[in-house]
Design a binder for these strands. Sequence first.
DNA 1: GCATAACCGAGACGGTACGTCAAGTCTTTGG
DNA 2: CCAAAGACTTGACGTACCGTCTCGGTTATGC
Lengths: 198, 198, 198, 198
Amino acid sequence: MAAGTTPNSTRRSERSRVAILTATRELITEVGYAKLTIEAIAARAGVGKQTIYRWWPSKGAVVFDSLLALSESPDGGIELPDTGDVEADLKAVLRATAAEFSDPAFAAPIRALNTEIINDPELAAVYREKMEQPIREAKLRRLRSARDAGQLAADADLDLLLDLLYAPLTQRWLLRSGPLDDGFADALVEAALRAFRP
Amino acid sequence: MAAGTTPNSTRRSERSRVAILTATRELITEVGYAKLTIEAIAARAGVGKQTIYRWWPSKGAVVFDSLLALSESPDGGIELPDTGDVEADLKAVLRATAAEFSDPAFAAPIRALNTEIINDPELAAVYREKMEQPIREAKLRRLRSARDAGQLAADADLDLLLDLLYAPLTQRWLLRSGPLDDGFADALVEAALRAFRP
Amino acid sequence: MAAGTTPNSTRRSERSRVAILTATRELITEVGYAKLTIEAIAARAGVGKQTIYRWWPSKGAVVFDSLLALSESPDGGIELPDTGDVEADLKAVLRATAAEFSDPAFAAPIRALNTEIINDPELAAVYREKMEQPIREAKLRRLRSARDAGQLAADADLDLLLDLLYAPLTQRWLLRSGPLDDGFADALVEAALRAFRP
Amino acid sequence: MAAGTTPNSTRRSERSRVAILTATRELITEVGYAKLTIEAIAARAGVGKQTIYRWWPSKGAVVFDSLLALSESPDGGIELPDTGDVEADLKAVLRATAAEFSDPAFAAPIRALNTEIINDPELAAVYREKMEQPIREAKLRRLRSARDAGQLAADADLDLLLDLLYAPLTQRWLLRSGPLDDGFADALVEAALRAFRP
DNA sequence: GCATAACCGAGACGGTACGTCAAGTCTTTGG
DNA sequence: CCAAAGACTTGACGTACCGTCTCGGTTATGC
């Protein structure tokens, strides 16, 4: 049933937990991560500050959990499309990712999350386990399916392939070093696949 | 002679400027970017706070300038090794970059810089122009030389190639998602070159 | 048998009541009245906070009861010495009182009690009835005996005499405006008696 | 010019100092000492909390200074009436003191001050020196004049006489143990003088 | 003789105030 | 006549307690 960084207890008020995470998400999009304060979260959530400090060790952890709650799919299973054509499928997925990054509603919180993760190794570990891992697994499954179908070299290092696909996209978005258009997504997929074709 | 983000003036005390940038660099490595304060910089530099506020618009700008001062080579020219063997040369360069990232003395300030840039588009623009551009140009020169030598496809998109080479490395370092060893650097170079071979 | 400010009930846990009053007394001498907290009392007594709030209306009331328990003599009767010589008897009593005030174990809680009473008229009333009255009555009995023996004027206002005897002593102790030695006690008794001699 | 407990400095803002002391006095009479908070003082005075903490070590010290400012007469000289009749003069003075105690506007702050002094020996010392001393000196001058006029015993202990006069009054007021009417004041004066008549 | 209700410990809750820290602005003063 | 020194207002920090409110778990009548 949920649960990211925060411990659990029967005594805990679910109403407060949800109010805090919701308030956090709203405030991030409204005022930005840099100006997000615990006091504002508490006020917006109608909660005492102590209730936040009781269950989360840092502002970053609250932000993290508030985004985690968003990303968790109810069924728990994430799957990439598999039409049989890796290149087409990956292009669709990367274009979608690029589009998401361009949507301020998504972008602001994720930018905040990245800032937090860069400076907090502990949080980074939780992030990888809870948020990155499930998605990465889904991506790897799709690539394995492609390899099995002979669309990729039999000895292809799929982890590396994934990095080649996604890192340039994320980097460009984070540092705003160029446009995130479909052309870039397509070129990325083509180049990455070229490196691992059979 | 100076010049990053900051304006200039004859009235300005060079002694103070240098003291501030030096103090900033020292403090970043000592206490980390998150705990860096203007007051501490002023105190360490033996300078009034106002003197900092007079010349820099934000903490990020000071940090930026303090690192810019470091990266500026006196002669102004940066050049990558060119032995004639792109693969070997790139591997050497990426291994060196990875090693730098592993050195806390370098890592802390650059991490700080990245945090700042992610959340400040204006600063990001200056960063790209003043710090990234010159290095990127040098890298592109090396790749162009390889293309001319027939080691890369004639129509290779060298900008994309650069992204494929460096983004996964930077990403892995920033998010600490894996080890930055020579094996990774080598695999990266091999895969990226494979995608653009003639 | 107990009973100060607090109501009673058969259901009430005697063990808890005693633990709370004991903890309160200990904490007053340890940390002082100003830093005494309900939470600390509850923790020390191994008791839920609610158990305190259920039976006492305020911190002052708990403190009061904890001291009341001390002052209550088992037999219920207090009597001043009566050797036939009022002056000698009063000097002995005032010296003893002064000595008590000099003992930190007594002084701290009584100081606390006075602080509480000064600012809480309701508590002051209970204090007068439960703690001051019995002692004052005993003192008056001794003075009446002296008046009957012709050692005081027949029309002496014994209440006023009592105030003249004790107020300067208490005042000096509370405000630390001078030493509480035997000389002071003696001088006080002599002057007060002089004002009411036959 | 002033100056009680607080240190001094040329840099200090006189405007803030006065605003804080005024706000403190107002708040004591409005909400009482127990509910007086530093935050409320700062807010009312239009001052940062830090400015209070910078110059005063405790809430008690602020309260103290705020009352000290009141009690300081501009000319610096306090004198009791001297009609030649000690008894009449003292009765007038004690009646006036009793009346002051009955006025809530005076009573509340002084009660607060007493609470503070009882529990803070350091503050008590300053209180004695700055506030009590000057008044006590004036009273002693009047008594000395009476002794010189042959209205008091030549060897009368005037300090003790003062205590006998004032302690019962103050005590009765602080503990609310009886009415502060003219009758009480008069009886007090008569009894005290009786003890020290020639 | 068993239910049931009050009391118990524990401790989470919404709050208020604490005392500290730093931000960014304004003022004084010494070199 | 700058610029260091540092006081100022502001606002958030993280902590301590407040007094209220469940939570289960004993008791110990009283039906």
